[in-house]
């Protein structure tokens, strides 16, 4: 059975989300270099299809956990660009009131925990979300994003097994971008695929083309439906690539430019654009309109962040306890 292709309006919306993430990241990088955004950055250019496809398969009431590389997950789950940008600026109007920062973006109102910057940290916490949904019979689902590097943490294995034996409504989404910081996956795993590890815990797993947003969305929809139906967790391994360095100061000496160029040819945004043009589902004017709209949203977000107030240190001591 050939799965149905989503409606053109849906596809254009997926395109818009991916473009928003890409251009958000490009702006942020520039603003970081300009010294406007402090701290450090882990960016997701190239991986937009995973965040976008998975979050589109979730309902508004579902939750996600994220990682040190959370900008795309946040925007795809519906954190407002204003609140995300203001958070990176460390402003009171940010989604975590300037307390969290780049590595902890999140917003409970849209079902996203503050991102967890401890590698593998989300993989156990997500089981608690799933347990709560199961015990509360709420029908909600929790999705957990993590990199292939995280699958070498004990937390990955404990979380997966626990979710399996408890049949929790959880979807584990591995973004296999081939490198954990500078470390190539094949140097730290004799098993070539993360999905293969799921078998050890009796969990269904699927390898997905993480550069194809439609494929990601399709696989995620199946996994989410199974989770919601009480059939337990699925592991999705999304094959993807980060076009940029691990963090802001990474010269990427551990991988070849040839490899990078090959992956860039599979740019998920360009790919979807070509498909839509070929199918006649959208024309250049439609893409221009989306691009203009995204730019306007980001102009507004940057302006909002710039003009927002700093947090007040006097309130700080109240922040640690409920």
């Amino acid at each position: 059975m050939r799965p149905e292709r989503p409606q053109p309006t849906v596809l254009l919306e997926l395109y818009r989300t991916m473009l928003l993430i890409r251009r958000f990241e490009e702006r942020v990088y520039f603003l970081f270099l300009e010294g406007e955004i402090p701290g450090t950055l882990h960016q997701c250019q190239g991986q937009e299809a995973v965040a976008t496809g998975v979050c589109d398969a979730l309902e508004a009431g579902d939750w996600i956990t994220s990682t040190h590389r959370p900008h795309g997950h946040a925007l795809a789950k519906g954190v407002s660009p204003r609140a995300a940008m203001a958070e990176l600026y460390g402003k009171e109007t940010g989604c975590c009131r300037g307390r969290g920062g780049s590595m902890h973006l999140g917003d409970p109102d849209v079902g996203m925990l503050p991102a967890i910057a401890i590698v593998g940290g989300g993989n156990t916490v997500v089981t608690g979300l799933g347990l709560a949904f199961k015990l509360g019979r709420t029908g909600q689902v929790a999705a957990c994003f993590f990199g292939e590097g995280a699958t070498n943490e004990g937390a990955f294995h404990e979380g997966l097994n626990f979710a399996a034996v408890q049949q929790l409504p959880v979807v584990f989404v591995c973004e296999n971008n081939l490198y954990g910081a500078s470390t190539p996956w094949e140097r730290v795993s004799l098993v070539p695929s993360v999905a293969a590890r799921a078998g050890a815990y009796g969990v269904t797993a699927q390898v997905v083309d993480g550069m194809d947003v439609v494929a990601v969305r399709r696989a995620a929809s199946t996994a989410v439906a199974a989770a919601r139906a009480g059939q337990g967790p699925t592991l999705l391994e999304c094959a993807t690539y980060r076009f940029v360095g691990h963090s802001r100061s990474d010269a990427r000496g551990y991988r070849s430019r040839v490899e990078e160029d090959e992956w860039r040819l599979r740019d998920p945004i360009v790919g979807l654009r070509h498909q839509l043009l070929e199918e006649g589902a959208a024309d250049e004017a439609a893409f221009d309109a989306v691009g203009g709209e995204v730019d306007a949203v980001l102009d507004d977000a940057v302006e909002f962040a710039r003009s927002s107030p700093d947090p007040d240190p006097a309130e700080l001591l109240a922040d640690a306890y409920a």
């Binding site: 402090p38 701290g39 958070e87 460390g90 402003k91 975590c96 300037g98 307390r99 969290g100 920062g101 780049s102 902890h104 700093d310 947090p311 240190p313 700080l316 001591l317 922040d319 640690a320």
Partner: peptide, 11 residues
């Protein structure tokens, strides 16, 4: 101070 380290430089 007895709080987790917050992100914003002023904090």
């Amino acid at each position: 101070l007895d709080v987790p380290i917050p992100y914003a430089p002023v904090l």
